[in-house]
Amino acid sequence: MKKLINDPANVISDALLGFAAAHPEVRVDHENRIVVRGDAPVQGKVGLVSGGGSGHEPLHAGFVGPGMLDAACAGEIFTSPVPDQMVAATQAVDGGAGVLHIVKNYTGDIMNFELAAEMVEADSGTQVVSVVVDDDVAVQDSLYTAGRRGVGATVLVEKIAGAAAAEGRSLSEVADVARKVNAYARSMGLALTSCTVPAAGKPTFDLPEGEMEVGIGIHGEPGRRRVPVAPANEIADMLVSPILGDLDFTGGDGVIAFVNGMGGTPLIELYVMFNEVTQILAKAGIPVARSLVGPYITSLDMAGCSVTLLKADDELLRLWDAPVNTPALRRGV
């Protein structure tokens, strides 16, 4: 393992120190491992709190700021944060209009956020509503699984719900917007290599040189199948076809198309992929209304990418275009 770290045990605290130094506009509570918008709580605005295991940077802390999240909780690598962190974050951003928890659909995240919401409501009476993101079509959603994983759509939910909250909408309205994004978004990912968790020191799974894993999760969970490495146009088809097969993307105002890097893939390859994705969409008669290309929800040093499509309408496009000012996503300001 070759990594730019001091001690595997201190990766998260060291990174948070660097994050605080680089972004003085946000507050970092090092003891609780939470990142809070500098001017929080914003009176009268719904507070948005998310969080999850570390290793997906810039998600979630990179999206804290005006127009997006009010606070993010950092867990251990690939491990849900604990309720104490979520309670502290919720209290820090409660501006009197309630707090929305944005939770990726993983067993640990669900249970810890559930406990946190119970603790907050018992303690302070602050109203908390949770929205679960589960957009990964690689997983069969059935009684026999933990359900679909929350992946790329999380970034879109945080941006769009953040814009809705900035407009001064109520907690239930912001939650409805977040649920709408989740309902209209689908994702599928692919790994060319495994990631290496610093504390483990070796790759999470073996993936031979000539093979790739289609349907990978963002923690190195296995996907649908292993296939020989293929050209980008074929890979794009392997990712986009199951998405289009799962939801009818025609007939709206086009899609917000998001090609995400898993952490170990250069941007130039993501643009090669984006070109292939747009060609498939053009053939399917689906216009690309907006785009996002880059590593926004990563899996440490994994090479690979994911594709997320969000079926757009006027409201979602307007909220997507609204100003945002965070360390990892900034425009219109």
Partner: peptide
């Protein structure tokens, strides 16, 4: 355990 473990085991053992 709820405060220190995280993941799914924290809430389950804690509860």
């Amino acid at each position: 355990l709820i405060s220190k473990v995280g993941g799914a085991s924290g809430p389950l053992y804690g509860t």
